[in-house]
């Protein structure tokens, strides 16, 4: 799943003309480490929802990669 998530994150970065990341860790912060702004996060939710069928921001703010993964896991 990490790999699929990494691909999605890099798609958002690429579309925005930002530098892609090589790897992500559980602690990786979406804003500070990856450099996402609100618009990128909005796009990220749409792409994650298309792939994993879950709206990760539905119940409030998500800050790290680990939090996304636990949201996706909770759906299973």
């Amino acid at each position: 799943m990490d790999k699929r998530l990494l691909t999605i994150i890099n798609t958002v970065l690429l579309n925005r003309g930002k530098k892609q990341v090589k790897k992500i860790k559980s602690k990786t912060n979406l804003r500070n480490d990856i450099g996402f702004d609100s618009l990128d996060l909005a796009e990220l939710t749409v792409r994650i929802e298309a792939e994993f069928d879950i709206d990760i921001f539905e119940d409030g703010i998500v800050n790290t990669v680990g939090e996304i993964i636990s949201k996706i896991d909770s759906k299973k």
């Binding site: 609100s38 618009l39 909005a42 796009e43 939710t45 749409v46 921001f57 539905e58």
Partner: peptide, 8 residues
Amino acid sequence: YNSVMGNI
């Protein structure tokens, strides 16, 4: 509709 921005 988008949960982050209201709309995308």
